[in-house]
Design a protein around this nucleic acid. Structure first.
Lengths: 210, 210
DNA sequence: GTCTATATGATGATAGAC
DNA sequence: GTCTATCATCATATAGAC
């Protein structure tokens, strides 16, 4: 398969999508110009506007690809781990890309994306899917007796989703994967206390246990 | 005090800083044009470049203000609450602004900010300060017997910092404060288990307890 | 499918009058 | 301190030849 600038694909439209994906991750939507995408894809102006009606349509195609890729990566992390604890640890583990920030989460900060239903939708759909997967993993953990049945898995799933999202921001700010490792350790030590073995017979403090 | 467009301050330089603050929060750095700041501040082009050498210098002044404000708000949340649990709950509680995203965290996604030491510094300094405050609160919680001495407060602090950061992204994505409330509940229920009263005599699972 | 030419407006300033 | 004029460059296309 042909490879230009690290962007693979023989067809021009594929190279345009790959290039847009890369630039959306690096710069976001507003800051990515059609000219920059064309340069990276080695495609002309006319070529881009032949395959895609507008910058927005090309970005939409790129977002859909990024969503699919992100879901596949998350699914792989969950299936590769065996216990509930390990699955959550795997979900929160950093990779070499986290310093760049989250490829999808960063886009929602962009006003042009946030206020455009078409451009916001693939992001919302992907996060909803990931959140549902975390809920599924935690629910299985309760079923298998790895987590206490008292745990509210829905709110815990949002916490875990938020931690990974927030860790991306901190990692980019510090230029280091360390915030990921710390945030992962921080939640993991609490999760260990949520094992049925650690259950207290006493009620939790009223102000927090709901 | 004079008030123009909700931007207070009699002096032109103050109105410019307030306007830049507002636009940085709404649009980020790259997407905020000097012309937009001038319009909002009711100041002319020459006026802006008289008070500030460049867009970057004005943005730097605005960032420093935002950092001070954010630190003051966090400090108020911590001092207004009494127990450790309540302080953490207060830190994670949403306000009417969270749907817009985090005023400082959003800026680090901007390449012009991330790769400019001057523009990145006030953000890094503010986050470091907030993280240190969370560590202090948690450490006091251990000292007062509200948290188990086994808790690693440093990593837990990063988790809590990341949760608030990530919840901002989810809140903006959904257009709702709900992710904040869910993420807060999710971590609060685990924190309740970290009370010494809930300590198990058994060791936690080796894979997570470190 | 790809190319070049052209269009319209915004960007981020600088210069110098008042 | 504030104003207007000017400038080179970029953004996001459209039109029509090849």
């Amino acid at each position: 398969m042909a490879r230009i600038n690290g962007v693979s694909g023989d067809r021009t439209s594929e190279r345009l999508i790959s290039s847009m994906k890369q630039l959306l991750w690096e710069r976001g939507y507003s800051a990515t110009s059609p000219a920059a995408v064309q340069r990276l894809a080695k495609a002309g102006q006319g070529s881009m506007y032949h395959h895609f009606h507008s910058k927005a349509r090309l970005a939409l195609a790129a977002e859909q690809r990024m969503g699919e890729e992100l879901k596949r990566e998350v699914a792989e992390r969950f299936t590769a781990a065996s216990t509930t604890y390990e699955k959550i640890e795997a979900y929160l583990a950093p990779d070499e890309h986290v310093i760049r920030g989250c490829r999808l989460g960063r886009l929602i900060q962009d006003e042009e994306v946030a206020f455009n239903d078409e451009l916001r939708e693939p992001i919302a759909e992907t996060y909803a899917w990931i959140q549902a997967q975390i809920v599924r993993v935690l629910t299985e953990g309760v079923t298998c007796g790895e987590l206490s049945p008292d745990i509210d898995v829905d709110s815990l799933a949002v916490s875990i989703l938020a931690i990974r999202q927030g860790a991306h921001v901190l990692a980019r700010l510090r230029g280091s994967q360390e915030p990921f490792r710390q945030a992962g350790r921080g939640i993991a030590q609490l999760l260990a206390l949520a094992s049925p073995r650690n259950d207290s017979t006493q009620a939790a403090p009223a102000s927090l246990a709901d």
